[in-house]
């Protein structure tokens, strides 16, 4: 498989996330498709490819956000590396284990993003903080099998 196709997938997922329909947003929350992609890359590609495309996906996400630039680039690279280490320690072949890994990565990403916003002096009510944290993360994990299937097909 030509690796440049992954660039196309990053662009498509970023576009999808930007135009995510309102009726598919639960409590104003949408899934983090790029996060699922970087987790899937670790599962289906070699480490070097996964990290390079995790950085590109992180840069793409940062480019569309008003928050601190490079936060997602750094986080995506770290998650890619940690999941790679984890995959050498435990068996992560089962889909629900992989979805659980996506859930943990999404929770951590959301906690760090939320705390970074609060740290910059902005006020987010606790209920909305928890809503953005929990619903976004669960939604991301729930959609992960679809992105896994797509990446698996491309890797084959």
């Amino acid at each position: 498989m030509k690796k440049w196709l992954l660039l196309l997938i990053i662009a498509v997922l970023a576009f999808l996330q930007l135009i995510w329909p309102v009726f598919l947003s639960f409590f104003n929350c949408k899934p983090d498709l790029l996060l699922i992609l970087i987790v899937a890359l670790v599962f289906y590609f070699d480490f070097k490819t996964a990290i390079v495309f995790a950085i590109i996906a992180g840069l793409t996400k940062d480019a569309f956000l008003p928050q601190v630039f490079a936060l997602n680039t750094i986080l995506f690279s770290i998650w890619g590396y940690l999941i790679y280490l984890l995959s050498r320690q435990i068996s992560i072949e089962v889909v629900y284990v992989r979805s659980a890994i996506v859930l943990i990565a999404a929770l951590l990403t959301n906690i760090i993003t939320g705390l970074q916003i609060i740290n910059s002096g902005l006020i987010i009510p606790l209920g909305i903080f928890l809503r953005s944290l929990i619903i976004s993360s669960i939604y991301t994990a729930a959609l992960s099998p679809l992105v896994f299937k797509l990446v698996k097909k491309l890797a084959a």
Binding site: L18, W20, V22, C29, D32, Q67, T113, S132, I135
Partner: peptide, 11 residues
Amino acid sequence: IARSFEAWSSS
């Protein structure tokens, strides 16, 4: 033509 990228900002 496009909405927020994630739940932590509104744009």
